[in-house]
Design a protein around this nucleic acid. Structure first.
Lengths: 363, 363
DNA sequence: CTGTTAGCGCGTTCAC
DNA sequence: GTGAACGCGCTAACAG
């Protein structure tokens, strides 16, 4: 029923080994022989049996890309970019030569599903795995993931982090591309402070995530440096900080509700910083629904600079992360097309984008 | 170095076949034996060899999901939804039982890459393939895809279309979930006409795509039914229609530039309909940059009702497509958890969402 | 319910 | 430059 290597060999009047060599292009083969084999392949519509090939070679052409939420363009952009570097250009014939199969796995932000996917990828003997986005900080999960990654690396799977801080143990087994979330968060709030804001609400992401923590830390660093709040070390300072911070998921609804809550807790806030652009959009909606104008009555800022942020009205002040470039680089690292950064870790700069949604507070 | 089934069997003092049976859960095994085997698996940190297993079983646990552009939430939402139905809930142990590996493949809208991915999936002996989004209408590619799908189906791969019209030949080998793009487009333009609009610009998607064509056809149906333009059959009618239509990719920039072009060609348009919400956002930006207000000076409408559309200012009138539900259903069809619709094809309704970006034309 | 026996289709030594 | 032989790790019949 299904055509095998042996069938092709018979038709081309060569041995199966020769067909294999032609297909993989790893050994010298006479041009005339190669020609004959390729013709037989086309005639028979032969398609290599991936599992058999992977079994014999002890490695597959699968590359996994793990994302927290594929419906979020933040991840979509990175994953798509990584795939452009992995899938290969294709030769237009649809014949599929030595391409890798880049596959995106949606963890939904759940550490369990992340582990499950890693196991599935391990089972497939994946050639490489790219982990994108912030990590959950629970020590048990950290350890479980680290152990799993160690096993994968041990089996020859290349590991790349993209937009994710390196493991605490600083394993040499991964290349890590980390976003400067802390620095970006700091500069964003510094901008607000320089405009004259002092009471700034913060809609944070889910607790226990590195991205959430780093962005929030940057924000508070800026606040403290400006003396806008007392040192977090003091009871008063910590309390004030907590009162102006609300946590929630990275979605629009969370931004809406958290903003309402902030406005209730502290009606005198003059600015709201959101954990990301999607959340910021929800915050904007909430502000408007309360009958306030942006930025005249209240400033709003986001993070990431997703494509839609420039089209918000007013355009959203935010922190630009080079998601596409980072994803593409991660893809190249996964393919071994590019050397890992020195020390295995590179920090990717975040750029402040000042637009219409922030202005000086009134009065 | 790597632990195999035989190692587990030895440690559990059973035969390899028994271990296989426990792992796959397809045959009855005594509880005590199962217990012993599972303990051995955990002790040894055993992970099944996917390729070997697929080779022997002649089928793999891979399910492919093809999308045009994963950075676009339109696809991200569908793909993520499909994955929730395929990945299995996971048992929280990260052990990965009988789960399928749902993988998203980004074709970039290129038919060649689509074919390449299908070949790759065929090579992996994928259990199922879900194709999302509109198809390219070039007959050569249609035929190539149809032939490839036939071969996949022949090899036992289940084929599901999601948001994509069924193949012309109407093969019984696929289950198709098609969006009512034509009906949605018609109702949207009927809404505009009922508000009093007669000169309506249309920013269409790329030519030769089913989605583009169907939405545009719906638009023109409404126009003709209202007598807003002469019959397309006449030279005058066709010319007028063409003058008020600009094609471009499904992105923000295209919406911006096409709108500028439309405004140049026909400064008296009172409304602009965009091929989708992302394009509509670009259209809004162009309208504003020309110093006009939405909807007072000009109405704008989109399609899809992506999450950000309700947060546009003013909120975008659009056509809601149940992307998540459709993706989830496609996932279930791919898993064989749900019976195919009668005739193999189901049309999914599109719902008109009237919001602030459309109003009666002035004067 | 469990063990034994054959391959699944291909990559890779070796020889020639 | 090419062919022959072996084994990758597992599942699927069969027995028992």
């Amino acid at each position: 029923m299904t055509v095998t290597l042996a069938d092709v060999a018979a038709r081309a009047r060569v041995s199966p080994a020769t067909v294999s060599r032609v297909l993989n292009g790893n050994y010298p083969v006479a041009a005339s022989t190669r020609e004959r084999v390729l013709r037989a392949v086309d005639d028979l519509d032969y398609v290599l049996n991936g599992p058999a090939s992977s079994l014999a070679a002890a490695t597959s052409d699968l590359v996994g890309i793990l994302v927290n939420d594929i419906a979020d363009p933040f991840f979509g952009i990175m994953a798509g970019a990584a795939q452009t570097q992995i899938g290969g250009p294709g030769d237009g014939s649809g014949r599929a030569g030595g391409e890798k199969l880049a596959v995106i796995c949606n963890t939904g932000g759940s550490p369990e599903r992340e582990l499950t996917y890693l196991t599935l990828l391990q089972r497939q003997r994946a050639a490489a795995v790219v982990l994108t986005g912030g990590a959950v900080e629970d020590p048990a999960h950290q350890a479980a993931i680290a152990a799993k990654l160690a096993k994968l690396a041990d089996a020859g799977t290349r590991i790349v982090f993209c937009g994710r801080p390196p493991l605490p143990e600083g394993d040499a087994l991964v290349a890590a591309l980390a976003f400067d979330n802390r620095g970006g968060g700091r500069r964003l709030t510094e901008h607000l402070i320089s405009l004259g804001h002092r009471r700034i609400g913060y809609v944070a992401g889910p607790p226990e995530r590195t991205t959430t923590r780093h962005r929030l830390e940057g924000h508070r660093e800026a606040l403290r440096a400006a003396g806008a709040v007392e040192e977090g070390g003091t009871a008063e300072g910590a309390e004030a900080e907590d009162r102006l911070t609300v946590h929630g998921p990275y979605d629009r609804r969370s931004g809406y509700e958290a903003t309402l809550e902030l406005l209730r807790r502290a009606p005198d806030v003059t600015a709201i910083v959101a954990a990301n652009d999607t959340v910021a959009l929800g915050a904007c909606a909430a502000v408007r629904d309360q009958g306030m104008r942006i930025p005249q009555d209240i400033s709003v800022a986001g993070f990431d600079d997703l494509p839609f942020s420039v089209d918000a009205v007013p355009a959203l002040t935010t922190v630009r992360l080079p998601l596409f470039e980072a994803g593409a680089r991660a893809g190249r690292l996964a393919m071994g097309k590019e050397n890992p950064p020195p020390g295995g870790i590179a920090t990717i700069a975040a750029e402040l984008m000042i637009r219409g949604s922030t202005a000086a507070p009134r009065g």
